[in-house]
Design a protein around this nucleic acid. Structure first.
Lengths: 221, 221
DNA sequence: AATAAATTTCACCAATTTTTCACCTCGAAT
DNA sequence: ATTCGAGGTGAAAAATTGGTGAAATTTATT
């Protein structure tokens, strides 16, 4: 297994590399989020171990960026006391969480858990089905009654985000923050328009994208 | 939101104050670390923007001192080229960093990022059950005997608020203030009408919404 | 540089929701 | 039993919201 280790501290990278290689995996390193994103674009990894606090581009932003193009399992490394990040992390697609300082045993257990979880999914084809709507996040494909739907990048991201948070009410504000990015300073109605486009592409399955008046939207089976 | 701006340069304080107030926040100022620590002891702020370089007591020492008594999010302002120990900053509880010269957009984005991150606390998709009345706050769903109740936005908010304060007597005044907002300028009877609508939607479970004559309402199991 | 594609903004419309208000009912205190 | 104030009710007016298509802007591609 190819594992990418992302942390700005060389010592931590070295420690992690040792754990990882001890189990017979191949280790790669990146010193910050920028580098991690670049490496993930150019190479195929099976797992990413990502620190939260890093210069240039923090861990969360890096994960968000990586998940746009690749659906690689991610385990986040965070310093103790960062309780607040967990829900957010889950939303952007983080698979697990380890708090520093960590033990070798703990890290390896998490890595094995995540990869095993994935393996099961892959063998059963990691395609989410909602009646005739098929969503393949890894391959960035969406099928409506077996026919491929041509979505724009924002539409994919919006749909994937909604699906990841299936059943949860999402405000326009939250959607803008999480799908468009924390630095998007624009109009609320932007969401409406993209929802409109997404719905028109989902044809009859537009029904899964539910409007919550006075609030926002949610995906519901 | 109450935001404390700490910088020894009056001009920088003025600029930051403008950004901060433009977004509808309340701005307070301190000219050095000493003053900042004193103000934080005596008042409640939601966020501190702290310069690193200051006379009397530098930014880091001030943050360390403040964090001893209050857990307020802090964003540090540092001049370009000043490489500080990020790990140390993180350890003492600095939430983010902005390098001078900064743009309004950048500063506001960081402020929003930090405060939003803090705001997330709720975990899981919990469903509260009161006999045949099921309430899913995250998904904004209410079921009456297994059938979905279609509530209007205000009805959801009102119900959720009542449930969150289950067993507690709530005056109309308090309901208006907390559910409608502090800036609602209208009639008391508005509450009555919404209670009426809510009750009619809750069918037999209207019994949980109890009238307290001469006082207001409460939710009681 | 030109063209195409995607994204964002905007103004209007229809539908829903909220608020107000006049009138009604109930229950406690006299 | 009567009175009085508090709460319930329905309907109409007022306000808000979301959908929509087109235009403007940004971004990517040739």
């Amino acid at each position: 297994m190819k594992i990418l280790i992302v942390d700005d501290e060389e010592m931590i990278r070295a420690v992690l590399r040792e754990y990882v290689e001890f189990e017979g995996n191949e280790a790669f390193e990146a010193a910050d989020g920028m580098e991690a994103v670049k490496l993930c674009r150019e190479n195929e990894y099976d797992l990413v171990l990502m620190d939260v606090m890093m210069p240039h581009l923090d861990g969360f932003s890096a994960v968000k960026e990586i998940k746009k193009t690749k659906d690689i399992p991610v385990i986040m490394l965070s310093a103790r006391g960062e309780e607040y990040d967990k829900l957010f992390a889950f939303e952007i697609g983080v698979d697990d969480y380890v708090t520093k300082p960590f033990s070798p045993k703990e890290v390896m257990a998490r890595i094995n858990a995540v990869t095993k979880r994935r393996a099961v999914k892959v063998s059963g084809n990691e395609i989410l089905k909602f009646e005739g709507l098929e969503i393949d996040m890894a391959g960035r494909n969406v099928y409506v009654d077996g026919e491929k739907a041509e979505l724009t990048p924002k539409e994919y991201e919006l749909l994937f985000y909604l699906v990841r948070n299936k059943g949860i009410a999402l405000t326009r504000e939250k959607l803008l923050y999480d799908v468009w990015g924390f630095d998007f300073y624009g109009d609320d109605r932007t969401v409406d328009t993209h929802i409109k486009m997404l719905r028109s592409n989902l044809k009859e399955y537009r029904k899964f994208v539910v409007t919550l008046r006075g609030l926002g939207y949610k995906f519901e089976e």
